[in-house]
Design a protein around this nucleic acid. Structure first.
Lengths: 351, 351
DNA sequence: TTGAAAGCGCTAACAT
DNA sequence: ATGTTAGCGCTTTCAA
């Protein structure tokens, strides 16, 4: 620790050349006499020179840092997204600064400001921004932005990587309808909070409408921050005499909460209650019952977002506005009861 | 985007003072005329000045970046560790750069070099370094290092935040012994890979020895990178005529793999096979069966590590060598069969 | 209390 | 092919 950090000028002096020559060797720019080159490289090794990226970034007026804002990295969906980003980024010479917004707008803003100070080369954000005015923060940032998972609810100039939340929700509900369900509740992230919540609600609603099923507002349950109130919501839902036979859970944590509630209250799944959900991942094949629903390509979502960002960066920040919609995977699972089958057995319905 | 980024000199010019005065205002150093101060602050707002941390870091020769290397953020244990770090770091003005080593030494080295270039203020690492020579990389880095989860197998000058892996493993095995098990296998991360694996193996071994149970080498199963070979290992283990009645799974992914194997091969848990494991977390209360074992305080591990690091940093890098051992939590779960009870029922054992 | 000026470590014109 | 030099945007002596 007594030894100061060695810098370009040190190895220049050691080698007997100028700093710019050393720089050229290190950056493989211009021609450099092979012999000089070798001597420099030797010096770099013997002196154990480590380039200072901070200085370099200052000079180049940009960094290779990607700022990432997700809800909560502790959620398996987001940890995969981040992993997807990090892998692709690192392979391409970029690195990843991660933040957790907990779905709180103020934290998103606060982190964005930090990232701007840090001169990150771009941002990948699961945004909760609600007004075009707020999006200005991103548009004026002067760096590429890629929205993942969520996006603003209006026409945006930024790139987005999402799934088709509307259609996915609709299809999930359709599955329930196909199995004879009519009383289908949706348990959703606070709807005013974000685009995905709105879209998923729309999908649920339209599936019902198209099937000629009445949309009951008491079958819409909105959870708050970190599902804090979900236990009570579920109690409300299941204490009413009009109980749903099936539930659309719009993310993994909600699905888990419903499962837990069911376990604790002796509600049998799927006999008493069917569940379909988003993020029905079960990487280790150990869920019992296995959740029925769909899986978002989280790793890929991260990868694609990083790809778009880095490409923009390489094109010197030329703004592209790609709107990527990723495909999801359906999983059958065990949590949907077929009411027809049962009715059939009861002689209430003929084939 | 047409507008260049505004810098200190811009607001100096705008306000009619010198850059150094502006800097002083922004850093709350020295006395500044309150009126000047206010004018500067106004200018900062109207011009929307964003400090450039890169320039600042270059000048100060240090950053507020914490480099974090974990195995795989996709694993719930590590995602919690990272979350613990990030939360504490951000609250204290630091930010977190995350990497996934996949438990590969070469990636650890590669990431460390990147971090050194980035001038991070410290490193939090789940290390796989195997030789004192390799640890030199960290010791010569000239920045605080905190090892989490794992640590080098020799006396180290760096701080560590771990659990008592030896004792934890021993206690888990003791639980099995207390329930009448004798044929207890250990399924472990590749033992030569890291300290935790060695310690956990030792704990398993000594629990058996102290109970007068013969230690059978065929009951030691080592998995490789990402449990790639675990399916075959388990087949080997269970095809032998000498089958274990119980298993110590030394981490969550291993426990899951065992569960999955059991599901797929109609091995009943715990009737046919008991399991105890590390990282038996079940945050949502939805595991069936619920794993028996212990829980590491992952969030706290991250927090404490960040705390130590940041403290060192604030003391101007004065090296402290704290060796923190965190407490774990036991969870009963459903995956341990009591052989006494059964034997008792069969009349083979009296109370 | 304020300003001028040096310099953090590097890159890239420009000059040779 | 190589060296000289001027910054990148900021902090911080030193002087006034």
């Amino acid at each position: 620790m007594g030894s100061q950090k060695v810098k370009l000028s040190d190895i220049a002096q050691y080698t007997g050349v100028s700093v710019s020559t050393v720089s050229r060797v290190l950056n493989n720019k211009n021609r450099v006499d092979p012999k000089v080159r070798e001597r420099v490289l030797d010096a770099v090794k013997t002196l154990n020179y480590i380039p200072n990226e901070v200085a370099r970034s200052l000079k180049k007026r940009s960094t290779e840092a990607i700022g990432v804002i997700v809800n909560d990295i502790t959620n398996s969906f987001f940890s995969k997204v981040v992993r997807g980003i990090e892998d692709y980024a690192y392979k391409n010479g970029y690195y990843t600064i991660v933040c957790n917004s907990d779905s709180l707008l103020e934290r998103e803003i606060s982190y964005t400001q930090m990232f701007l100070k840090l001169n990150v080369c771009g941002l990948i954000v699961d945004t909760r921004c609600k007004t075009p005015k707020m999006e200005l923060m991103y548009e004026q940032a002067g760096i590429p932005i890629v929205y993942i998972d969520n996006k603003p609810m209006w026409e945006t100039q930024c790139s987005t990587v999402t799934i088709n939340n509307y259609l996915c929700a609709k299809n999930l509900v359709q599955t329930l309808i196909d199995h004879g369900h009519k009383d289908i509740a949706i348990i959703n992230e606070n709807e005013s909070a974000c685009w995905t919540a709105t879209e998923r609600r729309r999908g649920w609603e339209n599936a019902l409408k198209e099937a000629g099923i009445k949309v009951k507002s008491n079958f819409i349950v909105n959870t708050t921050y970190k599902n804090a109130n979900i236990e009570n919501c579920l109690k409300d839902l299941f204490l009413k005499k009009e109980m749903p036979t099936a539930i659309l859970a719009t993310n993994n944590t909600i699905a888990y909460s419903v499962l837990k509630f069911a376990f604790n209250h002796n509600i049998r799944i799927p006999e008493d209650l069917s569940i379909v959900c988003f993020d029905a991942d079960d990487d280790y094949g150990i869920m019992r019952p296995r959740l029925s629903g769909l899986i978002q390509p989280a790793l890929e979502m991260g990868k694609v977002a990083a790809q778009i960002l880095i490409n923009m960066n390489r094109e010197n920040g030329v703004k592209v506005c790609e709107q990527i919609t990723l495909k999801t995977t359906e999983v059958a699972g065990d949590t949907v009861r077929d009411l027809w089958e049962e009715n059939n057995c009861n002689g209430k319905r003929s084939i």
